[in-house]
């Protein structure tokens, strides 16, 4: 138990520190990298809670896919850091005031007095052969069938909205049409042989006709 507690505090401190760095770094790329760190250490916290599946999914999906994409976007965008930071000092006092009030309230409420071990005794450790993913799947498609379906619709809306907001027809862009490339078949229609009159520029040259080859696609 002692070592687990030690691990908890280590990862909790890393999470808090990384979260603080996310909002204080000047360079957005650094912020994103710290966000990745915060995610990884929260995944470790979930592992300590015996939610192994969720922890691994957090690393795979958020760190592996979402944040990497996010990093690409940030690197591609031309962000003017000076305008982003404008007003930071001006709003800092009121920001600190609100943060302090909220933090004190949260510490008072979410403390041992309300959420201590008397109110919430520690749960029994799961058996060695307990399968996280199977348990999750079992309730996800029975008890929570309705919310899962709604979540699916939300994803559909996200796709439709993203396409609507970004897809534009640009006639000047050059592109390759893969469906036409795939449809190309071997045969006489692919290569067109063109008969041309022999060129007689220099009398000493070879006079055989060169067949012109033209790609169809």
């Amino acid at each position: 138990m002692g070592f687990e507690k030690f691990l908890f505090y280590v990862f909790a401190l890393i999470t808090l520190w990384a979260a603080g760095m996310v909002i204080t770094r000047k360079n957005p790329v650094h912020s994103v990298l710290f966000l990745v760190l915060a995610f990884v250490s929260s995944a470790a916290l979930w592992l300590l809670l015996e939610a192994e599946f969720l922890g691994i999914v957090l690393v795979l999906v958020y760190v592996g896919a979402v944040m990497v994409l996010f990093l690409f976007v940030i690197m591609m965008l031309d962000i003017d850091i000076a305008t982003l930071r404008a007003g930071f000092i001006r709003y800092l006092p009121i920001g600190i005031l609100i943060t302090a009030v909220m933090a004190v309230e949260i510490f008072l409420i979410v403390g041992p007095s309300n959420f201590g071990l008397e109110a919430f005794p520690a749960p029994e450790p799961a058996a060695a052969d307990a399968s996280n993913a199977a348990d999750l799947g079992r309730v996800l498609y029975t008890l929570y069938l309705y919310p899962v379906e709604i979540a699916a619709v939300i994803l559909l809306v996200a796709i439709v909205a993203a396409i609507r907001l970004t897809l534009r027809r640009r006639p000047e862009t050059k592109f390759v049409d893969p469906s036409r490339q795939v449809r190309v078949k071997k045969g006489p229609r692919r290569i067109r042989l063109v008969k041309m009159a022999a060129e007689v520029a220099v009398p000493a040259a070879v006079s055989s006709a060169q067949p012109g080859v033209e790609e169809n696609s």
Binding site: Y146, P147, I150, A151, I154, V157, A158, V160, A161, R164
Partner: peptide, 17 residues
């Protein structure tokens, strides 16, 4: 609370777009 929140997000996401 779960479907309530999901419904709210579905509505909000469509309205943002």
């Amino acid at each position: 609370f779960l479907p309530l929140y999901l419904g709210l997000e579905l509505q909000a996401l469509s309205l943002y777009a």
